[in-house]
Design a protein around this nucleic acid. Structure first.
Lengths: 340, 340
DNA sequence: CGAAGATCGTGAATCGTTTCAAGCTACGCT
DNA sequence: AGCGTAGCTTGAAACGATTCACGATCTTCG
């Protein structure tokens, strides 16, 4: 089925294509009667303009106006899972920065699928977004340059590459801090709980923790791999830990959700936290503070992370060709509550 | 500024544009020597092909959608708080339906602000979205018709109006069910915990519950109003409840987050749930099942809700002028666990 | 030696828009 | 009447890639 084009609309309305285009883009130039006629035709035919053609013809996006009102633009925020409080907090930070600068955020989720990620990116391209902030799943260098060629700025969150701006948290340091704390309160048999679809940052946390522990002269921590980074899976992990021998006396969870599920289940099993087993999480989500046993965790500066990422994107747009890619690294910190 | 085009590459390599295109798309058709020459030219010139032109020419050979001929469109999903698991679940349901039909979802958050909601809507209009699914905050009839005039379909979630499609859960019924359950397990002094910025649905739940309780011959339940529908506020509510006299023996929270914070704090205060005080939540978020005391709650068919809403929007687009607005109402159900 | 294939390249047509110089009307003014 | 002006419309020329029916060469073989 041929896409109904502007030409058919024109024929239907009895005007020229130029006029239809004007109705679409500068309606004030067209006499009211004609305008209505054209609009009616558009309606009847269900016409949708072809963004590719529009973009092709228009060429590079209008460079920011001389002075004053810079046009309001939309930025895409692509995260791996919009259901994860960590991701949404980062995205909110980004949105705040964007809004402060008078722009808007469009949220998209890749659901850990490279295909969906790519689709989202295409969509943003079609929508002529000004830029994209992304927690990447399968994004490669070629995607980056394609987006850039389309005039969009690209900022990576939680991952880095030399030819792109990026904002991330030092996860290795996070792992080290967590392990050091566990060691500091006298734990010697530490286990690590994570998920199968383990994103890069989790790996880094684990590495940082493992290194610290080994350097302190203890055994490399055992790693329990769950189906997901969710409380339900944390529950399951609790049982697995109870079955281990020797039983760990400290657990480092890849995120707070896991830790909360774990602690709640320990409670039900009669294991005292932190007396019998200390538990430390990662993220410091809101729930951490009001968990059954308030959770000791590694706080990630989530909002700041998103905010920084947005600033980078804005800078890239602002600076144009003279832009130099920057890598921002934020440091996580330890929040001591009761679980460890 | 001028994008290096395929033409310049061709000139540089001393071949025709067709050949360059072939190198790009069907390299096997081109002799090796030529291919290399062209590739070198591409490299030297830093050529990146113009996706718009490519797409334009290629036509709708895109992601082989269901019925190929329908163009891929974007729909806006505007929720009040992207940080709220309820909202994200609904939005995911909607996204799933949209994706299944070959379309995309753009998420926007109004953050409970009518101004931001309006802004989001404007943005979607600018982006020429095909429609919008919205959990409204300040949306009025004039907005609806403006959007419609711009050719977008509009579907309300969790709210209704006669001149728009809507999908919602029967909150009054939810309140009745919750109250009936509390009554059923012998509770007589019931309190209701909610937030100041109480969305319409919460009011309905409260009404349903209050009516049931009064009709059963008990006193109208006391209502505690917190700053937000969050676990931290649930904690605060726990203290307020302990200070009440006579002390309630059953609590109905406006959402699960509140309930979880409340229960955890009760645990710390030595109040046994459900023996001393029964607690029932609303939403059945994932955490509910793995809370310290697994939460009895009212499950809302969240995904289905989003899915239905999306279906309505799609139908509106599909049916065009002949479309009749429909109201879909889903029924919530009781999930009994341990807290009540 | 010549014809039939095979192999490579060519270049014009095309996709659906936007843009813009130029044309047309109708109107007001001198 | 003549002319300027303002307001609308028109139509064709881009935009940059892909496609495809044809040529141009080169092999191969009777």
């Amino acid at each position: 089925m041929a896409q109904t084009s502007i030409r058919e609309v024109a024929r239907r309305a009895g005007v020229s294509v130029g006029t239809v285009s004007n109705v679409l883009n500068r309606p004030d130039l067209v006499a009211e009667a004609t305008r209505n006629r054209v609009r009616a035709a558009i309606e009847e035919l269900g016409f949708v303009r072809n963004e590719s053609a529009r973009r092709l013809r228009r060429g590079p996006e209008r460079t920011a106006g001389e002075f004053g009102d810079e046009p309001r633009r939309a930025f895409g925020v692509v995260v791996e899972d919009l259901t994860n409080p960590y991701a949404t907090d980062v995205a909110r930070g980004a949105e705040a920065a964007l809004n402060a600068a008078g722009h808007d955020a469009l949220w998209l989720s890749s659901d850990y699928s490279a295909a969906k990620e790519r689709r989202s990116l295409e969509l943003l391209e079609d929508q002529r977004a000004a830029g994209v902030l992304i927690i990447p799943v399968g994004l490669g260098a070629r995607d980056t340059s394609r987006l850039r060629a389309a005039g969009m700025s690209v900022v990576l969150i939680d991952r880095n590459a030399s030819d792109v701006c990026s904002a991330q948290v030092d996860h290795v340091a996070g792992g080290e801090i967590a392990a050091a704390h566990l060691l500091g309160i006298g734990r010697e048999r530490i286990a690590f709980v994570t998920g199968v679809r383990e994103p890069q940052p989790c790996v880094e946390r684990r590495d940082g923790a493992a290194r610290t522990i080994v350097e302190a002269g203890f055994a490399k921590p055992a790693t329990l791999i769950q189906d997901a980074l969710s409380p339900t899976e944390g529950q399951a992990a609790a049982h697995q830990i109870m079955a281990m021998s020797p039983r760990p006396d400290g657990v480092f969870c890849a995120n707070d959700l896991l830790a909360i599920g774990l602690i709640n289940e320990f409670g039900r099993l009669g294991v005292r936290v932190p007396d019998d087993i200390a538990v430390i999480g990662y993220d410091d989500i809101e729930l951490a503070a009001s968990a059954a046993v308030p959770l000791t965790t590694i706080r990630q500066p989530r909002r700041e992370l998103g905010w920084e990422a947005a600033e980078l994107a804005l800078a890239e747009i602002r600076e144009g060709k003279s832009h130099q890619h920057r890598q921002v690294v934020l440091r996580p910190d330890l929040v001591i509550r009761e679980s460890a």
